[in-house]
Design a protein around this nucleic acid. Structure first.
Lengths: 219, 219
DNA sequence: GTCTATATCGGGATAGAC
DNA sequence: GTCTATCCCGATATAGAC
């Protein structure tokens, strides 16, 4: 129960040389990331992890205290990767709308779902403060970052001043997560794409018209 | 494997007299509905269902061919209930915006998540055509119904003609499902509420101004 | 119809050899 | 560090008594 003794906590960086032959520990984490994505936490057994990683039981219990400890390492790794990928969209050049659009339209494996969002539906994950924390941080950061981009767009006069950056950011993040749900229910990416088009169109309507006459402030 | 022999298929109505002491079969379905919501499909064992329903193993395998067959009955029942609840919002009086808002703002047990949306994250459910069908129908109907309401709003001149009803409907449905995800990650309903406020504000901006001068058509 | 055995399998973890 | 052997329990289903 009280496991998850990850002392090397917080650190969840991938190995320095990504090309080097993966260590046993690395292979365990990678395999766990894949299986958590495919089957969720309850659906993922240590046995399946070991088989995919190609190692024996002993190795796993040597490097990790148990299933939840290994899952913690895997979830952190995945969350970090997602955050980096998202940040690339938000720092891209262009208007606030462009950058949000870049995030929404970025390539995704829609039918596989969101590897982090999925964890949210897993009872054992949400009930464990340690396992939930990376999800909380990731989505908290995401909403905050989108809100920042939107607020910046307002300051630049690109977006209507009346827009609520925080609420809009939550809506944008929710559309992506909900899009996954709708797509998986239909076994078709179309609902995801439609949802993204939907918010983007609504957001585009908030773009300020190129300012017909700001001529007065120069006079 | 090839079970789910629900011959009384399609029918998933609750018993005629909801007040009468629930039959064994009814208690099994109800217990399964609850457990699927709480723990998902993989996380729900027949044993747990039997304990909650207060019946023995024999009863379950007498009325149903197995776990998946019972789950099918439960999922259908839940999906039907959700559809009915949603329809009440859409048939309510008021503008298209009002009716969509009524759906979005309707009371929910946000932190428990969506009982149908959750199934979407469950491998065994999505991989089974029978089990996935109710989800597909439910969300398909939902998107279609929201699109209808929006299109009607356009015809009535309440909403901007440029609005894409189908894409907007997908976005609205996605915001709800994604809101659940964000809320559960944060263990806080705030992100859900923010997301709903967000889309509603964006949608409100699509409302046509009360028409300053429709005076010409009477002349 | 409903119950209580019973059977088989896999999940999750430990022990101890190499 | 890594492996295999072993342990205990719960998941899922069947058999057959009442």
């Amino acid at each position: 129960m009280g496991d998850t003794g990850n002392t090397s906590s917080t650190r969840n960086t991938a190995p320095a040389s990504p090309s080097a032959p993966a260590s046993t520990q690395e292979r365990l984490v990678t395999s766990t990331q894949e299986l958590l994505w495919e089957r969720g936490y309850v659906g993922t057994s240590p046995k399946a992890i070991l088989e995919r990683a190609g190692v024996g039981q002993g190795s796993m219990y040597h490097h990790f205290t148990g299933k939840s400890d290994l899952a913690l390492a895997a979830i952190r790794r995945t969350a970090d990767g997602m955050q980096q990928a998202a940040e690339e969209c938000f720092t891209a050049p262009g208007t606030a709308y462009d950058r949000v659009a870049s995030y929404l339209l970025r390539e995704r494996q829609v039918l596989r779902g969101c590897p982090i969002g999925r964890m949210t539906q897993d009872r054992d994950v949400v009930r464990s403060p340690e396992l939930r924390q990376p999800l909380d941080e990731m989505f908290g950061w995401l909403r905050h970052r989108i809100a920042e981009v939107l607020a910046e767009g307002q300051r630049r006069g690109e977006l209507a001043a009346g827009l609520d950056p925080v609420a809009t950011a939550a809506a944008v993040a929710a559309v992506v997560q909900g899009g996954y749900v709708l797509a998986r229910a239909a076994e078709d990416t179309a609902p995801f794409d439609a949802a993204v088009r939907g918010v983007l169109a609504l957001l585009a309507a908030q773009a300020v018209i190129p300012a017909t006459a700001p001529s007065s402030d120069t006079a």
